[in-house]
Write a protein that binds this DNA or RNA. Structure first.
Length: 670
DNA sequence: GTCTGCGCTTTTTTT
DNA sequence: AAGCGCAGAC
């Protein structure tokens, strides 16, 4: 639906934000207070008053939000070209664009972005090189090392201190870890490879340069930042370098919705901005246009934070109170959710108006099974996308070495897919390829059993690199990779379609480089292109982590696993900050709902979160469901709880089950 | 050096 | 339940 008259729909506070002139503008916007509408209207107002769209930079948290905002802004100012001309995207996406423009200033041949998987691969490689891979040293996983590194970089805190505060079990190995991370940075730099953090670091470096920085600053007169409570120190530096005195800067945020502390973000940055920029103006948005007052009554009890926004519903009338559903176990919880979703659907609520939210990806396992059994279509956000699956990354590795022969980690990946090439050969051979060694020489250095296949691969990669036509390049890479994967993966038939789909999407691109970069930086932004995601006209239920649900809303919301250990996650309980962040997550989850909110607490859960085994342990309802919170809710017991008030279901059914003699088939093998 | 099968540890959230 | 390292066979 298109807003034809935006100004008429704005309330006083929103209008003040839209029309603001002069110094920095800080908008403290509670959940559902029309933050998107306000930002959009402000952009439209700027354009209508004569600002060129390319002078506006809109930084949002996900590309989904960026796209929604630009198109809404375009609709508001009757100028569809705004969509193309305005700068908008995530910090990382914009950084990539800027860095790619300035490769020569940065001494880079090309911009190759390492995805998180590449980072751990590279760390594994270095660990191997330095003989630190055995269990003798028992270093933490490369994943953990990457987290330590990223956190240090993003907060400007030394790794040793990061370990002491966040990863105490790593302190024993602090020296070796630091050596490894130093080697990691050196190797990255030597090969011209950038990880996600580097994109921001390089952008900041460009802005800090006297000449390039001035040119970049001159590019945007207006900088708008969404979800400012989720920025980290590097991002703050970038914003401050873009608008040093705050002139032309608009920042929107809500400290109660800060949920990216694990990435080095602090809502302190939002709160401190007003002190750093004394001329700034604060506008508070507290009128909620989303939820019923009944839902807000709970949200206001749950809401933490220093901004003390108290939300009041703009909507008239009243809706049902939030419901607390006590379930017997996670299967019971899954059934209960499916029942409620279907019931609402039968009353006319589309599946797309309902969502199921949870703390971690695995919490929806049982539900996914239940939904499949019942034939309820759904789409899960926030899990591992298939762009991150091994076979798709193999194909992308072929693209990458074709574009950049210095991409050591992609060579390594590609080589290990060959039969008879293991870690050791792959390591030496990929180093040779990076040096630019002749392909024939490299083949002759490979183990005899691998030579034929390797010669073929290198020939096809050479073909790929020699063309600039994406379709031809993709075809050569696909030919190179397919036979390798066919013999490498036992379940190739299951994976083939993905590789085919990615290849097709890639061959349609005008610029393969930017396609790869986009797929790396934000897989979800391109995932829709090749049909894994349901079409928009289909009706499907959304399953999402709370993190991925940020900024979105649904008529009906189901919140899974509101138990201690899951929500708050017991991983977060080691620190006060961790627990506070969990509470903000809980707040974010409750405020996604417009009309109905159901919160589920299973009383028994599997011992290990990822296992479906029958071993269960008792779980307590979430500590966030305090007495005042529960007073705003209705309590309900699930069918499963009512059906078996006393006996343990598993034990009872085991006893009741008849023993069936299993025939031994020995006579078949005599 | 590589491959296969077995026993061992997993800690969550995302650009 | 799955992914990783290890031991042993080739």
């Amino acid at each position: 639906m298109i807003d034809t008259d935006a100004a008429a729909d704005l309330d006083d506070a929103q209008r003040e934000a839209v029309e603001h002139h002069g110094g920095a503008l800080v908008v403290a916007a509670g959940a559902g207070t029309g933050k998107t509408r306000t930002l959009t209207a402000r952009v439209a107002r700027l354009v209508d008053s004569g600002v060129a769209p390319e002078q506006i930079l809109l930084l949002t948290f996900t590309r989904r939000v960026a796209a929604a905002m630009t198109s809404r802004a375009a609709a508001l100012c009757e100028n569809p070209s705004v969509t193309q001309r305005m700068w908008s995207g995530t910090f990382h996406a914009v950084a990539h664009r800027i860095v790619a423009e300035h490769t020569q200033h940065l001494g880079l041949e090309d911009v190759t972005v390492l995805d998180p998987g590449d980072v751990t691969d590279l760390l594994d490689l270095l660990r191997e090189e330095r003989g630190l891979s055995g269990t003798e040293h028992r270093l933490p996983t490369s994943q953990t090392l990457a987290d330590i590194c990223s956190r240090a970089v993003n907060t400007g805190v030394p790794t040793r201190q990061v370990m002491a505060e966040q990863f105490p079990w790593c302190l024993d190995h602090a020296d070796r870890i630091n050596d490894l991370l130093k080697a990691y940075v050196a190797r990255k730099r030597a090969r011209g490879l950038l990880d996600f953090d580097d994109l921001l670091i390089y952008w900041r470096a460009l802005l800090a340069d006297p000449i390039v920085g001035d040119r970049l600053r001159a590019r945007w007169d207006w900088v708008l930042v969404d979800e400012y409570q989720d920025v980290n120190q590097i991002q703050v530096d970038i914003v401050r370098l873009l608008r040093p005195d705050g002139e032309g800067l608009t920042v929107v945020g809500d400290d109660a919705q800060a949920v990216y502390g694990f990435r080095g973000a602090t809502s302190e940055h939002l709160l401190r901005l007003r002190e750093d920029l004394p001329g700034s103006t604060l506008v508070r948005l507290e009128r909620n246009f989303r939820s019923s007052q009944q839902i807000l009554d709970l949200a206001n009890v749950v809401r933490p934070g220093a901004l003390r926004l108290d939300l009041s519903a703009d909507r008239g009338g009243c809706g049902p109170r939030p419901v607390h559903v006590q379930c017997a176990n996670s299967d019971d919880e899954a059934r209960e959710v499916a029942d409620a979703v279907l019931a609402a659907h039968q009353e006319g609520l589309d599946l797309r108006d309902q969502a199921v939210l949870f703390r971690t990806g695995t919490h929806s396992n049982q539900l996914e099974i239940e939904l499949r059994v019942r034939g309820i279509p759904f789409h899960k956000y926030g899990g591992i996308g298939y762009l991150e699956t091994a076979h798709v990354r193999d194909l992308i590795a072929a693209f990458r070495v074709s574009l950049n022969p210095g991409d050591e980690i992609s060579w390594y990946r590609l080589l290990t897919r060959h039969r008879a090439l293991g870690k050791v050969s792959a390591r030496t051979l990929s180093a040779r390829l990076v040096e630019g060694a002749d392909h024939h020489d490299v083949v002759s250095e490979a183990p005899a059993k691998a030579r034929t296949a390797l010669a073929r691969t290198l020939e096809l990669i050479r073909t790929a690199s020699s063309t600039r036509v994406p379709a031809l390049m993709v075809e050569a890479c696909q030919q190179a990779v397919e036979p390798l994967l066919r013999q490498h993966y036992v379940d190739w038939s299951r994976r083939a379609a993905d590789v085919e789909g990615v290849a097709q999407a890639a061959s349609r691109q005008r610029d393969l480089r930017s396609f790869i970069a986009e797929a790396t930086i934000d897989p979800t932004s391109v995932a829709g292109d090749w049909g894994k995601k349901p079409h928009l006209d289909e009706d499907y239920l959304v399953l999402s982590t709370i993190h991925s649900a940020k900024g979105l809303e649904w008529s009906a919301v189901h919140l899974l696993r509101a138990t201690d250990g899951a929500m708050p996650s017991d991983m977060a309980l080691t620190s006060k900050e961790g627990l506070e962040e969990e509470q903000r997550l809980f707040y974010v989850a409750t405020t996604r709902a417009r009309d109905t909110l159901r919160i589920y607490s299973p009383m028994r859960l599997p011992v290990h979160p990822t296992s479906m085994s029958s071993r269960h342990v008792l779980a307590k309802p979430s500590r966030f469901l305090t007495a005042p919170a529960l007073r705003t809710m209705d309590a309900v017991a699930s069918a499963g709880v009512l059906a078996q008030p006393v006996a343990s279901g598993a034990a009872a059914s085991k006893q009741a089950a008849p023993m069936i003699a299993v025939p031994d088939l020995g006579d078949l093998f005599g």
